[in-house]
């Protein structure tokens, strides 16, 4: 598929002029720091002295550092719960909100609100929800005569944090799915109605196949977000000396770089994170060819 109009002659000149600020920013901030990260991953550096050549030591540490391996496992568990959660729930929300109802805008806004609210502020609210004695969630559990749960203790923190992250991501997922849903021609549904298909049948036979491009895109985005998840985890599970009881990879990178003066190790971890995400993306694009249906 090709989009847009091809620039011709003098337009091409202006095209580049207009792109320069963006390209400049990309080259000097994104690519610059990417290259610096690669270089630093082969060095020992605490930011204060001069970097010293480390060879592949930082990369060996990726396989021997128990704390990093734990954070890698945490990120994997987080992603396995988070990605399907976001995709399924935001698709359901989008389907429910894809109708002509009075005040539908209010509902859509309500679901999108977390996306535009500061993570720090919402994390504080969730802290109150998850509180052991004074939390709203445990209050509800007690109404049903269930035992209170320590939501942010090590035993439950992962689940609690995944819930908050999914909650925070539904809004954006919903927007993507709503766009996909409105693109499905109404005629299909009308024809199905004539043939006597029910709501569920329409969803599985028409909506789902036609929305696979949106699902693919959302799975892709959610995976990247899952591997970069940090803010809610930092706010909800940070302990007294700055560690988390469920440290994820980005948390480990931050701690190593800024708290432990291990900039080289942190860079190697960042590279590994990038490689993992890149490999997953390749896998996704391979799957796309087989399962995604473009009209």
């Amino acid at each position: 598929m090709e989009f847009g109009i091809k620039p011709l002659g003098r337009e091409r000149f202006w095209l580049w002029i207009l792109l320069v600020p963006t390209l400049f920013g990309l080259v000097f901030s994104a690519f610059g720091s990417l290259l610096a990260t690669i270089a630093l991953s082969f060095a020992h550096w605490d930011l204060l002295g001069s970097p010293a050549w480390a060879g592949v030591e930082n990369y060996i540490a990726l396989f021997t550092d128990a704390k990093f391996l734990k954070s890698l496992a945490n990120t994997a568990v987080f992603s396995v719960m988070y990605v399907p959660g976001v995709v399924i729930i935001s698709l359901l929300v989008a389907v429910l909100l894809n109708r002509k109802l009075r005040g539908i805008g209010v509902f859509r806004t309500a679901f999108y609100l977390p996306a535009v609210t500061s993570a720090v502020a919402t994390a504080l609210v969730w802290n109150m929800i998850y509180g052991k004695d004074t939390g709203i969630l445990n209050y509800v559990l007690e109404l049903f005569h269930l035992a209170p749960v320590c939501w942010l203790c090590t035993s439950h923190a992962m689940l609690s944090v995944v819930i908050v992250n999914i909650w925070g991501a539904i809004g954006e997922g919903m927007i993507i799915f709503l766009a996909g849903l409105t693109a499905i021609p109404n005629e299909y549904y009308e024809a199905a109605t004539v043939d006597g298909a029910g709501g569920l049948r329409k969803f599985f036979q028409i909506t789902l196949p036609l929305i696979t491009p949106s699902i693919f895109f959302q799975v892709l985005l959610s995976t990247i977000n899952a591997f970069q998840a940090y803010d809610y985890i930092y706010m909800l599970t940070r302990q007294g000396q700055g560690d988390s009881n469920i440290p994820v990879v980005v948390f480990s990178i931050y701690r190593n770089a800024w708290n432990f003066g291990n900039y080289g190790g942190a860079s190697a971890q960042a590279i590994e994170l990038t490689v993992i995400v890149a490999v997953l993306m390749l896998l996704y694009f391979w799957l796309e060819k087989r399962f995604v249906f473009y009209e």
Partner: peptide
């Protein structure tokens, strides 16, 4: 000091949360 304090302070955290 920072890393040591984290190893001790955060290492003991499961004790103080009762776990």
């Amino acid at each position: 000091y920072d890393e040591w304090a984290s190893a001790v302070g955060d290492g003991m955290a499961p004790v103080w949360s009762g776990e």
